[in-house]
Design a protein around this nucleic acid. Structure first.
Lengths: 289, 289
DNA sequence: GAGTTCATTTGTCCTAGACAAAACAGTTAG
DNA sequence: CTAACTGTTTTGTCTAGGACAAATGAACTC
């Protein structure tokens, strides 16, 4: 469509008349993809030169006035380990931080900023695909292990954690699970990419009090509101719907959907829910709403 | 295309002239999808009645003559726990089996058959999406934890584990990792869905001796051979390429690609590699081939 | 300065034609 | 009777341009 409409890209044709994209145009398209993901409009980008595009990519971290210690958690250091492909070193450095700070602060002050940093590096192409994968894998393992050693006990409320189709990112869910499990909630992690109807079925089957969804920045913002409305409709009224992740920034409010912009809001939402449905009501089905 | 060619599906149109598929046709399409995935051809299925389609789906477990104790590992029992949505019970039952049998036998005798059983249930629609997700999540956690407690030490060879784009299944990789890690190999798990060029980059960056890929039955068989040839070409000659999973059944042999049809073959391949490159050569770059 | 209306942008659907690769079937040779 | 070769059919995916609705941004009014 862009080819027809803007004259770019303009691929050559192979012997079968099929489009063949020169590496230069592919690179340009990758650049454009990054920029459109950040809100730039295709029509405005098509005419620009490679330099102009590169310029637009850069000045992202300009807005934040950086203090004397902009990176108190050593995220840069951790990222450096990843970029050296030192899986063991990374794991040890993270374990050390986890032991020093405790799980909650570790998640909020170390993991979350690091994920953000990696996301930024990803968007600007400063990190290789396999480096990002290694990071995700190692961090996932760390968090899973940290969660698995938490003490057992009576848990409430029951929270189903998952993401919608086309949203494969699981780290946000895992961080949330860590925070919730710490506070004594019962987490039912169902992986990512669950069709809407199945989310609803899962919530009923597991007698969940809450369904928590995560959206990354990469998720196509376009369809999010409709998606959430549909899910809210499919879900029984007494089950809360929590939605978080950077992909929910600047999302219009929806009735019956709790937007958790920051990780901190997860804990607030939990407190709020518990105030409304005091612990005496544990095991009561459908406490009303 | 099917609509144009076979007259099915024949969706109604909404007010915008866009196709709208009745639930019955969607169900029928799901049935057809399952059958084509198992080798049936679309043209032959289109004319059939719902009953005929259902009949074709059934007789899969017919071939194996079932002995008196067809399910010695209690897979059915474990699956039942999943279908009762009893995550805790499943986890405990698995932990118990793991403790009793040891990791290697656990993986080969319990996890692998169970994954197979779940896959079968999935293909015939006898398991809900969210049940399959819960199973995957719980099993993943189990295996990861089992791997993480293995003792450290000098490890060789270095094996990069990943899958190609459009192949999101990770349990096969995780089982392989468990077996390899047990035998003292150094595993570098890079998650799933890595573009070919990045697999090659990763292998170089991590100085891997082996790249191990996993293909599930759901992977489009069509493109597998070409994919593997391309990857083999992109990869340095001294790095072995191991390919496994049920998606590689009936795959034509490819030069320089080791087909591991069964989990057991992983261990054989490891032994073979070690015989060719004896441990004295540890740290030697590109031992020739 | 905030809300409403209009114009533009943009993604996604529509139809129909063509062809190459894969799968099958039939034939021939050992 | 098996195995390799050849021709035919099936099947997926590409091609082209047309249309329209939802999303976005700009201009206007209160």
């Amino acid at each position: 469509m862009w080819e027809r409409r803007y004259g770019f890209p303009s691929p050559s044709r192979d012997s079968n008349g099929e489009r063949s994209y020169p590496a230069e145009q592919v690179y340009r398209l990758q650049l454009i993809k990054r920029l459109t993901d950040h809100g730039h409009r295709p029509g405005a980008l098509m005419g620009k030169s490679l330099e102009d595009l590169a310029l637009l990519s850069q000045p992202r971290s300009q807005n934040q006035q950086s203090g004397p210690s902009d990176d108190p958690e050593g995220s840069t250091e951790l990222l450096a380990l990843i970029k050296q492909h030192d899986a063991t070193g990374y794991q040890q450095a993270m374990q050390q931080r986890l032991a020093r700070k405790g799980l909650q602060r570790f998640v909020q002050d170390t993991v979350a900023p690091l994920i953000h940093l990696v996301g930024e590096a990803w968007e600007t192409g400063r990190i290789e695909v396999f480096e990002e994968h290694l990071f995700t894998e190692m961090t996932t393992r760390l968090l899973r292990q940290a969660i698995s050693v938490l003490p057992a006990g009576p848990r409430w409320p029951r929270v189903v954690l998952t993401s919608v189709p086309d949203e494969p990112h699981s780290l946000g869910l895992l961080m949330t699970e860590a925070l919730l499990a710490l506070e004594g909630a019962e987490c039912i992690p169902l992986g990512t990419q669950m069709p809407l109807l199945d989310i609803s079925r899962a919530a009923r089957a597991h007698q969940a009090d809450v369904v928590a969804l995560s959206f990354s920045t990469a998720f196509p913002r376009r369809q999010t509101p409709l998606l959430l409305k549909q899910l809210r409709l499919a879900l029984p009224a007494h089950i809360a719907l929590w939605v978080g992740g950077r992909g929910t920034a600047r999302l219009p409010g929806i009735d019956g959907v709790d937007l958790l912009a920051e990780l901190d809001d997860v804990l607030k939402a939990l407190t709020g829910l518990r105030r409304l449905n005091p612990p005496s009501q544990i095991q009561v089905i459908a406490p009303g709403n």
